[in-house]
C-alpha cells in the first residue's frame, strides 16, 4: 500500500518545479511586467528550495524537522513573493507546494 507522505511530498516537488518553470519564464517574458528583475529570480530560488527541502526530508534520516521548517518557510515566502509580483502561476504553485507539504508532514509515514 502506498504511503501518503511520499505521495504528498512528491506532489510538493512537482508543484515547486512547476513554480520554478513559471519563474524562469516570467524573468524572460516582457508581457509579465517583471522581466529582467530580481523578483522572479528570488521566486525561482524559493521554488528550488521548496523542492530540495521536500526531497531531503524524504531521503535524509537526520535533520528532518529542519528540512520541514525550511520547506514551509520557503513555500510561505514564495507564495507572498508571487502575490507581490502579481504572477498567478508562481503564487498558485507555491500555495499548492505549501499545502501538500503541510498535509504530507501532518499525515506521518504510515498508511
Amino acid at each position: 500500500m502506498t504511503h501518503p507522505r511520499p505521495v504528498f511530498l512528491s506532489a510538493t516537488v512537482v508543484a515547486a518545479l512547476v513554480g520554478l518553470g513559471f519563474s524562469v519564464w516570467s524573468y524572460g517574458a516582457p508581457m509579465t511586467g517583471i522581466d529582467d528583475t530580481a523578483g522572479p529570480i528570488l521566486t525561482a530560488l524559493g521554488h528550488a528550495g521548496i523542492a530540495l527541502c521536500a526531497v531531503l526530508f524524504l531521503v535524509m534520516a537526520r535533520g528532518r524537522a529542519a528540512w520541514a521548517g525550511l520547506g514551509l518557510l520557503a513555500a510561505l515566502l514564495t507564495s507572498v513573493a508571487g502575490f507581490m509580483l502579481m504572477q498567478p502561476g508562481i503564487t498558485l504553485s507555491a500555495l499548492v507546494a505549501l499545502g501538500t507539504l503541510l498535509i504530507g508532514l501532518l499525515l506521518g509515514d504510515t498508511a
Binding site: 511586467g33 528583475t37 523578483g39 509580483l85
Partner: peptide, 8 residues
Amino acid sequence: IQRYGFYM
C-alpha cells in the same frame, strides 16, 4: 510602485 519586480 514596482521595485525589483514586486508591486506595492
